[in-house]
Design a protein around this nucleic acid. Structure first.
Lengths: 186, 186
DNA sequence: ACTCGTACCGACCGGTTGGTATGTTTTTCG
DNA sequence: CGAAAAACATACCAACCGGTCGGTACGAGT
């Protein structure tokens, strides 16, 4: 809902109607709309964490395969209209970074926390393939930047195809970076 | 102003106060707030077009140097608080893609129009360096995806450093793609 | 001098906003 | 059981929203 309309364009009344509760119940659980934004970001962190923890790409023996598997898994999620696959915290932080420090912080924690979970595989891959020249964290965050940027292009275009193309380039970057000549592997 | 607060969080009254005009004058020139959004996107297209047309990176003889010069030029703009260097149309389209087709379209035209202006150099570079396997347009759009994503990270973090790191990775991708061993060139 | 068209003003409108005050139901637990 | 407390509903508020309105200022044309 917030993903489709944006944070400030989604009213508390709409939120309540969508959730099937009354306004009184809403403000019983959340001190303010901003508090809901923070809670939504935290909930998003949790559910996405579970989604990716249960994904099949962790089974690969090679750390690079796990990283590429992650990218492919992300690419596989790019289906349907933009509001179905785009990122809640990416949407929210864009509107709230200047007006709500609490939401900004929750979104930062969500994005960076997710990126941090890629660092183990990236670090192992860099060591095994002898790659250096940048930090592990910066590459992990770069993958998130490409995804977030791909979401914006998808919203501008109205469909996921343009986002898939960009994720393709990200995949190509990783294969080149780790000197992996066959980009269609995995 | 819209870049700092977002489109829907910025009221017409605030816009008028910031521009030093009255509400009457505003609605005399724009039929609606949505019309202002479209006009703002168009104006953004125009001014950014002029900025990049006058940039020095066009002087390089090698098309790859021009592309890398563009990336470096973009990286050089990443200074100050997020609202100072982030993209207006990227911010607007995220909020308006679902509710305002006119704004969505204007933002798409702005982003894709800007990307299209990179295609000549990218195409030349691909030909000269014998690179293929993807379309010219997809790489041009990928650069925009990385930039837009870097803006989101910068907003989440509160500063430009994290965005520079991501643009660095984009630059590394291009040098690897075109088999250019020295990433510190230009 | 008169009229017309454009630019502009700012008070005002109905509706919506996030938020509150207070009452009612349901659950918890001694 | 019965009382405290948590969960939820209803009714309501002041502030603010995008947008409208009647009116004004003024230069150009006649």
């Amino acid at each position: 809902m917030i993903r489709a309309q944006g944070y400030s364009a989604t009213s508390v009344d709409e939120l309540c109607a969508g959730a099937g509760v009354t306004k009184g119940a809403f403000f019983h659980h959340f001190a303010s709309k901003e508090a809901l934004g923070v809670a939504a970001a935290d909930y998003w962190s949790q559910t996405t964490s579970e989604l990716f923890a249960g994904a099949p790409y962790h089974r690969h023996a090679d750390p690079l395969d796990r990283v590429l598997g992650y990218i492919d898994f992300r690419a596989g999620l790019l289906n349907g209209p933009p509001e179905a696959f785009t990122c809640l915290v990416g949407t929210m932080v864009q509107e709230a970074f200047g007006s709500s420090p609490a939401i900004r912080q929750a979104c930062e924690a969500s994005i960076c926390g997710h990126a941090a979970r890629l660092e183990a595989d990236i670090g192992e891959a860099m060591e095994r393939y002898g790659v250096s020249g940048f930090s592990i964290a910066s590459l992990a965050l770069h993958t998130q930047a490409v995804l977030q940027g791909a979401f914006i292009l998808a919203k501008a275009r109205g469909g996921p195809e343009i986002a898939r193309d960009s994720v393709d380039h990200l995949r190509r970057y990783l294969t080149l970076l780790f000197c992996h000549p066959d980009p269609a592997r995995s």
